[in-house]
Amino acid sequence: MREIFKTVLVLSAEGAVLTLLLMILKPYTSKKFSARWQKYIWLAVIVCMLVPAWKFIPERNVQKYAPQIVTTRQSTNRTDANIVDTKINNGGENGVKPAENPVTKPKIRINIFDLFSYLWLIGVIVFFILGAANYCVFLAKHRKNSINLEENRTFDEVKDELKIKRKICVRISRADTSPMLVGMVFPVIYLPSVPLDKESEKMVFRHELMHFKKRDLLYKYISFAVNALHWFNPFAYVLSTNIAESCETACDTAVVKNMDGDMKNLYMKTILDLAQKKKS
């Protein structure tokens, strides 16, 4: 446990430095790099906080000399043990057997680093349980307050346009919510019960299906895992927020890529109107 916690601390320090550096450079990178590459840059930081890359470096020299060192130590230990046994059997160096040590009660020692290690593990478990429970409650609430949309020609057109073959359910929510995509195994798109014309409805479907096509939900789940492992690090939450923002920006950019000016304006107006209705 101690070694795992040490590894997490090193990964957390790496992520904090990289996140701080990217936040400082964000005004520059947001202008010089595309939204897609900005998302990948933040994802690279996530990988750095999850994967201890130094553990994959081969230690050839250590493996080469390790057997010799072990053999030498074993032979030395055996020689020392034989000398000690001989002295004891002969009554010690002066011919007198050493007195037996009185039985002492073992002392319980608590290492402060071990204590922090177990506190970290408890925090990870609690974070995962609370996060999973809140997400399940969130899904159950929205499913209960929604009805299934059996057939929608506009939705099928957008799916064909984006070349998506996966079955995705569409539900109309009676709750005050904005359009959203949930579920990796059984994906569902929730739409608010707000009347939309065909073009606006198409814009909404394009946005949510683009999230599905770009696997943005997977990135958010991985971001949640980073938050759980590094729950004590405030930069992990900054990283998670930036991942969510970069996914949204990259999605919007991909949707409007081949649109003319009027269509872009309609898209932005539709997204902003639905967001405002949720707030109100």
Rank of each mutant, 00 (worst) to 15 (best):
K6D: 08
V8W: 04
L11A: 06
E14P: 01
G15D: 02
A16I: 09
L20A: 15
L21A: 14
K26S: 12
P27R: 03
S30H: 03
K32R: 10
R36N: 11
R36A: 15
I41M: 14
W42A: 02
C48E: 03
M49L: 12
V51M: 10
P52G: 12
I57M: 11
P58A: 13
E59M: 13
K64A: 14
Y65A: 02
I69F: 07
T71D: 05
T72V: 15
Q74K: 14
N77K: 13
N77T: 13
N94F: 14
N94D: 10
G95A: 03
G95W: 01
K97C: 06
E100M: 15
N101G: 14
P102E: 09
T104K: 13
T104E: 11
K107Y: 06
K107E: 08
I110K: 02
F128K: 01
I129Y: 05
L130F: 08
L130A: 07
L130W: 03
A133I: 14
C136Q: 06
V137S: 04
L139G: 00
K141H: 06
R143P: 00
K144F: 13
I147K: 02
K159G: 03
D160R: 13
K163H: 12
K165Y: 08
R166V: 12
I168F: 04
C169M: 09
R174T: 04
R174W: 01
T177V: 15
P179T: 05
V182E: 00
M184W: 05
I189R: 00
S193H: 09
S193E: 11
P195N: 08
E201H: 02
F205H: 04
H207K: 11
E208R: 03
H211G: 10
K213Y: 08
R215N: 14
D216A: 08
L218F: 13
K220N: 11
K220P: 00
L229W: 00
F232K: 02
F232I: 13
T249K: 12
T249S: 11
A250Y: 02
M259F: 15
M259C: 09
M259G: 02
D260M: 09
D260F: 09
M263K: 06
K264Q: 12
L266I: 07
Y267T: 02
Y267M: 07
K269W: 08
I271P: 03
L272V: 10
L274M: 09
A275P: 01
Q276P: 00
K277A: 11
K279A: 13
S280Q: 08
